[in-house]
Amino acid sequence: MAVDKKLSLMPGPHIRKEVSIEKIMYLFSLALMLPAGASIFLFGRHALFIILTGVLSAVFTEYIAKRIRRQRFRMDGSALITGLLLALTLPPRLPLWMVALGAVFAIAVAKEAFGGLGYNIFNPALAGRAFLTACFPKEMTRWVLPFEAVTSPTPLNSGFVWHNGKIALYKHLFLGNVGGSLGETSALLILIAGFLLLALGIIDWRIPLCYIGTVALLTFSFGKDPLFHVLAGGLMFGAFFMATDYVTTPITGKGRIIFAAGAGVLTVMIRLFGGMPEGVCFSILLMNAFTPLIDRYVRPRPFGWRKTDEQKRGS
């Protein structure tokens, strides 16, 4: 019986959800436009240049890397996000060539050298940032206040002083009128963008909730101001946009809770006891390294599984 050439044979399911990698990536970048816009508003033209440099170098590096690896380059939006995320975690006065170097490292080393999208272990944007921090410690910690070119420490730095009362501080932190990396200062816009992504089902609520919750709980139990620690620094940004990266975080709900709680613990450790004022970047990177292990051992209980099935799993 000859196969009818006009008929196509396809594996099921024969209908698919209206979703694609591109759709997810571009919606994610769209949400990031909120903190990106805020950074330009707060820190001026140079912020725009940093963002453009980050995005363009990331995409260009991806193109070159794909050419070298003899793979097809496609604008799937992932390099765009890496460039955008990296730019938004950088100080507002960073020289543009450093931004470009960070993006090259992020894409070429942290992503493509590991196999490209889906195979990288570390969050490329954070790896790029860590690389820059290691190479240019001075430039990476030069902060300015929004709307003015005056250098100023971030709220987490030891040199940070505040005289105008707690409520006013919270308000400044919430709106973003403090020193810090481009995208991390305005908690309000991060929240709006974050909730947008939650509503679209693109990010998992477990991660920001557990990450921020753990930090609040721990700082409170160490006698610090939990609200300050939640709003200041890169926690909100990291919790909504970095720790939620699909590739570098666990796939199960339980695994993600462990991941986020672990990142929360590490962040508080670094902030309170470490040599650096901020620990979000390194805590997420460290937990990225644990992701394969978490996925190997934290698995959901299969339907119909009973205690007696336990031996089978080990075999």
Partner: peptide, 21 residues
């Protein structure tokens, strides 16, 4: 395409399996 580890399949599986793994 290559799996991006989004975990959608894990949440969709009515048998609580890990399809992507």
């Amino acid at each position: 395409r290559d799996c991006i580890r989004c975990g959608s399949c894990v949440r969709a599986c009515p048998m609580n399996l890990l399809p992507t793994e």
